[in-house]
Design a binder for these strands. Structure first.
Lengths: 349, 349
DNA sequence: CTGTTAGCGCGTTCAT
DNA sequence: ATGAACGCGCTAACAG
């Protein structure tokens, strides 16, 4: 019932007229970079703009300037704490630079990821950040790289999070090293019979963690029999079901390592539901240190990743605003410090 | 070191030339609404576009058409499961309609919220969704309304989540009713000495829940003494500290209700750290039913809100694509069904 | 320092 | 059905 009269927003033209100056002057006083405009005029323009409720049309500005203030972020699942924490970092860093971030989700589907990247290019974002769990081996992989290369050729900047994806900038997470150290720590605590619940085998992050973990155990002369490694969805429910599978197989184990915290949470619940006290009967460890793992019982042993920082770094890496002292900053991968955190879920045996 | 030659992306013009047709024909074959173009031509254009790696410049398109394909979403904190779940719903529904969503965070700061809305208007979004916890009483409130009204006057659509904010469209969450029912259920379980850890008193969502809870108790002849109500940050740590405060006051209580689940998680941890078994010594209840509360120990009693649906509904409400059969759908508030979920944290006494 | 003019990439009349 | 020309809101290069 309200007036659908829908006037269009005030334009710079309107403001100029209202202030009695030229379009150029209005533009300069409102957005211009090198400000060289009479203060009196500037005042009038600003006031006129205010009076009219004018806001710069970013789209038009982008078209005219040929560059946008948009950052596109691609995640597998925004409701997953891992990604939402990273997103928080990206958004924070972006807003500091006056950039707006648009988020798209891929649902861990390679085809969809490719489509999304293509669609996103229509936005002509200044930078494109891919935080999705890189998958491996698919034909999409090379299509994606082609798409991204072409994106960079036309002035865009891309940043990956997690796996090195040369020649693109990368915030490198040392999944292998982190999992390796975790394994060493756990072995040091006295654990001997390990089992791993990994994500789908196409997910690189998961595979790297599995590799590193295996390597770490090997250093202690502990081997990880294939039947003690199960693959499941990279989600809480995946962890839950993986545990059930492990339990059903009758495997003997004193510690379960889940490839990420979200899965580990599922592991803990599954153990408990099966009548096994997590941390007492069987130790549990995860990876990421998402906020909630401090609050489950027992608190989860994990490998800490400064998720928000990772997001922030990714953006800075792409925009070139990183504090990196590196000689060639922006080109090489930026390593992130990771740390094993022992909590109640893995008491000394 | 790589070629910074940075050619600009292919334009529609390039495609037209490559295909040997006019700009208009190219436009019609690629984006046109009413398609009335010779199939042979269309083919050639599409192929040319593919060959050149052309992607429609959404900004330019927006400028030309005067309308965008952007949805702006405002949340208090994207890393908070409450908001990230809602965001997931919004993004999902948006992508179904070919809309891109940009997310901005306010950090529960009214001034910043206002600034952000203003900045976001520059994007000329089709719809603006405010999921942030509405604050009350501040002068910003009316500035915000003015800003939003003006946004709607110029063709935008705004949708609120949670509190009714007439005349704007709203996905109404019945905080009062939900908390009321929760209180009734808890009283029915035998609890008598209640305490509440609410959020900051300016946050409406928190106040409504407190109100409803108090009313529900009253129906059972139970009163909630003022000293049993503490206010704290609307975060996990807020819940933790609020609990410590409550404990320090020596208050006698058999149940703690936290105004949201994130806080309740903090409550559970604080109790445990204080040597009190949550669920045995003192019952704990929250609100929202965020994913993790199933996995903490004991599992948390709470009021379930279908968060993703809420996000989806908000978008549909704003774009008018809701399935609502309502006569005046789009104008009135859309109620969401909420439900009390009793779990291990509140055993019968 | 200011105003005029010509684009930016695209959609859309208007003729043809 | 197709193409030429104009306009969207804004910036940038050009004169004054």
């Amino acid at each position: 019932m309200s007036a659908p009269a829908s006037k269009s927003p005030a334009t710079l033209h309107d403001v100029a007229r209202e202030a009695g100056v030229s379009l150029a002057t209005a533009s300069r006083s409102l957005n211009g970079s090198a400000r060289k405009v009479n203060e009196a005029y500037r005042q009038r323009v600003v006031e006129a703009a205010q009076r009219l409720g004018y806001t710069t049309n970013l789209f038009a500005q982008a078209v005219a300037k040929g560059s946008t203030t948009t950052v596109a972020l691609l995640v597998a699942d925004i409701a997953d704490p891992y990604f939402s924490s990273i997103a928080a970092g990206v958004i924070d860093a972006a807003s500091e630079e006056g950039l707006v971030v648009t988020i798209a989700v891929t649902g861990r589907n390679a085809q969809r990821e490719l489509d999304t990247v293509r669609a996103l290019r229509g936005q002509r974002p200044r930078v494109l950040i891919l935080a999705g769990s890189r998958t491996t081996g698919s034909a999409f992989e090379e299509h994606l790289r082609a798409e991204l290369s072409s994106f960079e050729d036309t002035g865009g900047k891309v940043a990956f999070i997690s796996q090195d994806a040369a020649p693109f900038a990368t915030v490198l997470l040392d999944n292998r090293g982190g999992a390796h150290d975790l394994a060493v720590s756990l072995a040091g605590l006295g654990y001997r019979d390990f089992a791993v619940i990994a994500g789908p085998s196409e997910i690189r992050t998961s595979e790297e963690r599995l590799d590193g973990f295996t390597a770490g155990l090997a250093e202690h002369g502990i081997s990880l029999p294939p039947e003690r490694v199960v693959h499941a969805d990279f989600t809480r429910d995946g962890g839950y079901r993986g545990t059930q599978e492990l339990l059903a197989s009758g495997a003997h184990m004193d510690l379960v390592f889940a490839a990420n915290d979200v899965m580990a949470v599922g592991v803990v619940s599954a153990l408990r539901d099966a009548g096994i006290a997590p941390g007492e009967g069987i130790g549990v460890a995860g990876y990421d240190d998402i906020p909630t793992v401090r609050d489950i019982t027992p608190a989860l042993t994990t490998v800490r990743i400064p998720l928000e920082d990772v997001g922030r770094r990714a953006l800075q890496l792409a925009t070139g605003s990183a504090y990196d002292g590196g000689a060639d900053s922006g080109a090489g991968p930026t390593p992130i410090t990771t740390e094993t955190i022992i909590r109640g879920s893995t008491p000394r045996r």
